[in-house]
């Protein structure tokens, strides 16, 4: 695809607009965690992954699992822009009869590889997909995004053991390390630090980056591709609600959509400046 960094930044900016627009229309949904993860999704879908939106079931394709399924708006905006389905669908988010359920449904949305929503399960599912690819001798790589609050789920660490034990090196997991969960700061609710040490102790190759920096994400993905015999986790420091001052870094906007006024101001903010946005 060869999109350069500037191009990817433009895509991410457009996807941010799509995300807050669809959330405002839906009048419910998860703003903060969608915006913190969108730069990672942009890099995966518009640069890294071997996929064909015109043929979602293409054999040997790469796969993505959104373990933190509540960031569905980010995935939907990404898939629509990639061409998996008509962008007009985005306006139906969370409405009765929509393919765009509150959390991703693999049986409804082209391009969604695994239904998620219950936190803690995505890494296990990705392990299964990656192991299946190894059995088939397929070149498939599997990518996952987890939340940092989600790291509190016990099953994450079961899956962490599995990926190491079976040397699942065609797997690359991200932790969207935005520091916040529903009830407040992750470190105050149930501390997960030192997170990198934990993953290292579980036998993973750990890369720590700024997860809202396209260049750093791409570099980390390259390093993950080159890492053999063990899985890679990219601990991506991000800002929850990144991109708009109404929600950036604010706990409240975990599951609150922008009001009409907030949307209007946010669009002005992002459109009005050449550099993407200030936080």
């Amino acid at each position: 695809m060869g999109n350069d960094i500037k191009e990817l930044e433009d895509i991410a900016r457009q996807l941010r607009i799509d995300i807050i627009t669809m959330l405002n229309k839906a009048k419910s949904g998860h703003t903060g965690g969608s915006l913190s993860a969108i730069d990672i999704l942009t890099c995966l879908y518009f640069k890294e992954m071997n996929i064909d939106p015109a043929d979602p079931d293409k054999p040997d394709r790469d796969k993505f699992v959104l373990s933190k399924g509540h960031a569905a708006p980010a995935l939907y905006a990404t898939l629509a822009r990639a061409g998996y389905f008509d962008k007009a669908e985005l306006a139906t988010l969370r409405k009765y009869g929509s393919i765009l359920q509150g959390h991703p449904d693999m049986n409804l949305v082209p391009g969604v590889e695994m239904s998620t929503g219950s936190l803690g399960q995505g890494l296990s599912a990705a392990n299964g997909m990656a192991l299946a690819a190894k059995l088939d001798g397929a070149p498939t790589r599997v990518y996952v995004i987890m939340g940092d609050g989600e790291q509190q789920e016990g099953q994450i660490w079961e899956a962490a053991m599995t990926a190491h034990h079976y040397k699942i090196d065609n797997l690359c997991a991200f932790v969207d390390n935005n520091g916040l969960q529903i009830d407040g700061e992750v470190e105050k609710i149930m501390g997960i630090e030192p997170l990198a040490d934990k993953w290292r102790a579980f036998g993973w190759h750990v890369i720590s980056i700024n997860g809202n920096d396209i260049a750093q994400i791409l570099e980390a993905l390259d390093e993950a591709d080159r890492t053999k015999h063990r899985p890679t986790v990219i601990i991506a420091k991000t800002v929850k609600g990144k991109g708009f001052s109404f929600c950036a870094g604010k706990v409240k906007y975990h599951g609150v959509p922008p009001s009409d006024q907030e949307l209007e101001e946010a669009l002005k903010e992002i459109g009005g400046s050449a550099t993407p946005h200030q936080i």
């Binding site: 296990s124 392990n127 299946a132 099953q155 599995t162 034990h165």
Partner: peptide, 28 residues
């Protein structure tokens, strides 16, 4: 042995990993 996966004492991981296999076309 290549198609058998002992998941250890981790039943939740067992079930979701099986789902991942099925999503990839296997019969787990």
């Amino acid at each position: 042995p290549d198609r058998f996966f002992n998941m250890g004492v981790a039943e939740q991981d067992l079930m979701t990993t099986a789902a991942g296999f099925a999503a990839a076309g296997k019969i787990p």
